[in-house]
Design a protein around this nucleic acid. Structure first.
Lengths: 337, 337
DNA sequence: TTGTAAGCGTTATCAA
DNA sequence: TTGATAACGCTTACAA
């Protein structure tokens, strides 16, 4: 494949100067119709395509945003991405998705690459919101917004959902349904969300005046379907006198795994165990027993994050903001019998 | 935020020439340890980050691949992406994901942008494999591989799975289990996969000597959970004497929707209706009744596609190849009672 | 070992 | 209306 043609080649073929070609591209009204036609014909003949690197080098900034996400298989993140996409689109930018797969090294590689590319802004759901890589991006001047995680300092904009409230909503719902022995399923506690949802669960539990030891924490190693199945086995291993009558899972994948494990074992949901999930992914409503779940405004999260990153890129007086959205409980058959 | 610093700034601060700075970056062994240390210190002081646009402009090519996919929410595509990622990583490249959301205009925008960025190569699962946008990319000299779709001409490399065979495997499995009235659920038929899987289904049906009219086609408008539910209602509306005893769904999302609809209606899978899905996504195994499904080597698909696109980018003697992988049936409870 | 200078393709300024 | 030229930041001959 021959070298792609440049404005210079177009100029030569159209017998005009290089500046005129550029004008055709950027200020066509300044060019006489005749020469414009000539130039456009030459472009077609040569299959001319602007070289974005050169434009960018000249302009100092690119026309792209990027979202570095933890897990492209988790519908939560793809919904966030979709929201960001909409915002990017209306700003005339492209959004690239980068999949860190929960690996700090890949995340770091992507962030470094994006900074080198001088993207307009980066959205990231980081493996660890306190990792130094994020501060490096900031220091290098690329706007960055943290999505679905928070940091105590105000070094970055962030958008997140109130997970303490979400945990509270879930457990209040179970308490109202009369449950007095509940399992909290999730982990590891290194994940802020796990801690927050547990804290909310405990708040609701205490507020209902129920004894601490009747809220059992079942720790998992990850938030996956497989871990949900394994948690199911552990729940069922609890002696029937002390066995919880309901479970609150930190996300829907766990809840789906739990549901499957129970139904494999011939138990019925919600009769034998009521289940509340978290995230309200599409598969939650589509499960054989539709899952009660805590819904987060996912698209809105992405949209707002993209807006913030653009504000940071464009407004010299930009102030960092921590946006916190409110979750909402969606009750379905898995708790309503 | 002040302008990011350049090699020139670093050179000034380290009191060396700009060429030396470049050497530190690209051929550090040619620089004396003392000056190298000086330069590296200056880089740290200034928070220097290479400008990738400039490098790229100079080098004429970028260090990225991109995969333009139809639907980031469909685990099939994210698994393909993961395979591509692995291949990209071992070639030292970054992979960006672009989500067309099944919209030809977004797909075209992304492709145009990627060509302008002079990415090393593009993988794409196109809305329409015959659309002219693909030929435009080719004409502009960017290597492009079609993923999970095929074209009759040999203008592009492509990687796909034998969908006719997949359809045959699914229906052979049902026939072996003794079913003589089967529903084929899927659509629209504009999607090549739908046509191929149906063709395979019919082959297996005919080979078993079963009458045409006992293989009922239930057309859907899309391959989604919601459409699966609606198909479920239609299946159940068929008079019991003529109602199919098994269904083959063109993908797992349809199958999951169907499964949910049936269980909502109090029917049992596989007793009242056996179900075979397609894709073997994670949620298929995790459904309340684990789904029998046709598995495609998804990661392998992505890996191979990335390899082909790199070959096209690097080997002047590159020959286009149509790679076809073989699917495999995974039997689970939804057909095994 | 280090420095100088040309050039990648684009845009924008200024002059013709 | 069009053309010549400089500049963006980097890499790489080539010269010192």
């Amino acid at each position: 494949m021959a070298r792609a043609s440049s404005v210079k080649d177009v100029a030569a073929r159209a017998h005009v100067s290089l500046g005129t070609v550029s004008n055709v591209l950027n200020r066509p009204e300044r060019v006489s119709p005749a020469t414009r036609a000539k130039v456009e014909q030459a472009m077609r003949d040569l299959g001319f395509v602007r070289n974005e690197s050169a434009r960018q080098l000249r302009a100092g900034r690119s026309r792209t945003l990027a979202y570095v996400l933890l897990d492209a298989r988790n519908p939560f993140f793809t919904d966030v991405a979709q929201g960001a996409e909409l915002a990017a689109e209306s700003a005339g930018l492209s959004l690239f998705l980068c999949h860190s797969g929960n690996r700090p090294s890949r995340e770091a590689d992507y962030l470094a690459h994006l900074v080198e590319q001088r993207v307009q802004g980066i959205l990231v759901t980081p493996v660890d919101p306190h990792a130094a890589v994020l501060d490096d991006v900031r220091r290098n001047g690329t706007p960055l917004v943290i999505v679905d995680r928070t940091r105590e300092d105000a070094e970055f904009c962030s958008v997140a959902v109130d997970d303490v409230l979400g945990g509270r909503l879930a457990v209040e719902h179970l308490v109202e349904a009369g449950h007095t022995r509940v399992a909290f399923i999730g982990g590891p506690e290194t994940i802020g969300q796990v801690r927050d949802r547990l804290a909310g669960a405990r708040q609701a539990w205490a507020a209902a005046g129920l004894p601490d030891d009747q809220l059992t924490v079942i720790a998992t190693d990850a938030l996956t379907v497989a871990e949900g199945r394994s948690a199911g086995e552990r729940v069922m291993g609890i002696g029937s006198s002390r066995r919880p009558t309901a479970a609150f899972c930190v996300n829907d994948l766990l809840a789906l795994g739990l549901l499957q494990q129970l139904s494999t074992a011939g138990l019925s949901v919600p009769r034998d165990l009521a289940i509340v999930g978290y995230d309200d992914i599409e598969y939650a409503a589509a499960a054989a027993v539709p899952l009660t779940s805590v819904r987060q405004p996912r698209q809105e999260l992405g949209r707002r994050a993209a807006e913030l990153v653009l504000d940071e890129a464009e407004d010299p007086d930009h102030q960092h903001q921590q946006v916190v959205f409110t979750p909402e409980l969606v009750a379905r058959r898995s708790t309503l019998g």
